[in-house]
């Protein structure tokens, strides 16, 4: 259920986002999901890609400020989002950030909480459907 996510420091400047994405796609890195959080000055671009380690190295070589972070991935199938959130709230967990996307008719939730280990425990206990990195990439 642990997936490597790449975070990239982005300045709020015209063309920055497309420059970074082109850097990866030019090297045949497939982008599975992307989200941008922003303030007025800068943003953090978060990416799930097919080969996170290689993508990370490409970015480093290009002198891009990037970070590799572990996040949790869940398939939402029969459970609805509100219910899943309720489980986490009951367990006293806070969401730092999350984003959803669909892949091959599955709804996938990417999640980072204030306590990843306790979150894993909730996922196991409540029989939620975790997604492994290999599954995500091969879907």
């Amino acid at each position: 259920m642990t997936v490597n996510q790449i975070s990239i420091f982005l300045e709020n400047k015209y063309g920055k986002l497309s420059d970074i994405l082109a850097l990866l796609t030019d090297q045949n890195i497939r982008i599975i999901a992307a989200t941008v959080a922003d303030t007025s000055e800068y943003g953090i671009l978060r990416l799930i890609v097919c080969e996170p380690q290689r993508a990370y190295k490409i970015l480093k070589d290009a002198n891009v400020s990037a970070n590799l972070t572990e996040v949790l991935a869940l398939s939402l199938d029969s459970n609805n989002l509100a219910k899943v959130m309720q489980y986490f709230t009951e367990a006293g967990l806070s969401i730092e950030y999350m984003y959803c996307f669909s892949l091959k008719e599955k709804s996938i939730l990417i999640l980072r909480t204030n306590n990843q280990e306790a979150t894993r425990e909730v996922i196991r206990r409540k029989n939620l459907t975790p997604i492994a990195e290999s599954d995500l990439i091969n879907l």
Partner: peptide, 14 residues
């Protein structure tokens, strides 16, 4: 300039 992106956490940057 940041030396690198050392965190994934917004609040840390802020």
């Amino acid at each position: 300039e940041l030396s690198d992106l050392f965190t994934d956490d917004y609040s840390v940057l802020q």
